[in-house]
Amino acid sequence: MGAVSPSYKGHRYPVEQTYANALRRRQPQPGDKWHLDEVFIKINGRLRYLWRAVDQDGTLLDILVQNRRDTAAAQRFFRRLLKNTGAVPRVAVTDKLRSYGAAHREVMPSVEHRQSMYLNNRAENSHQPTRQRERAMKGFRSVGGAQRFLSAFSGISPHFRPRRHLIPASHYRAEMTVRFAIWEQITGTAGLPTAP
Rank of each mutant, 00 (worst) to 15 (best):
A102N: 07
A174K: 14
P196F: 10
R48F: 11
A22F: 02
R179I: 02
L150H: 03
Q132H: 13
R25F: 00
I63E: 02
R12V: 03
G31H: 11
S154V: 00
Y13W: 10
H127Y: 05
T85P: 03
S142V: 02
G101I: 05
V178E: 11
M117I: 03
I156G: 02
L23R: 01
A146K: 07
Y8I: 03
T94Y: 13
A146F: 05
R76T: 14
E124I: 06
R133H: 10
F140G: 03
R164Y: 12
R163N: 15
A74L: 04
A73C: 08
K33I: 15
L82N: 04
R69N: 08
N125T: 05
L82A: 15
P6N: 11
A74T: 08
G58S: 04
L60D: 01
N21E: 11
T59Q: 15
L47E: 04
D62G: 10
N84H: 09
E38K: 11
T130F: 11
G155P: 07
I186E: 06
E134V: 12
M108G: 09
P162F: 06
H113T: 06
Q56F: 01
L97A: 15
A123N: 14
A102R: 08
E124W: 08
F180D: 01
P193M: 07
M108C: 13
G155W: 01
W183N: 06
N125R: 13
L119D: 12
A195C: 05
A146L: 11
H104L: 09
R76K: 13
F78Y: 15
Q115G: 01
Q29R: 15
D57K: 10
N125H: 08
E175G: 03
S116H: 09
G45T: 09
R164S: 12
W34R: 07
F149R: 04
E184P: 00
T130G: 00
Q17T: 13
F40E: 07
A136Y: 12
P129T: 02
D37C: 06
D62P: 09
D55H: 07
F149Q: 02
S99M: 03
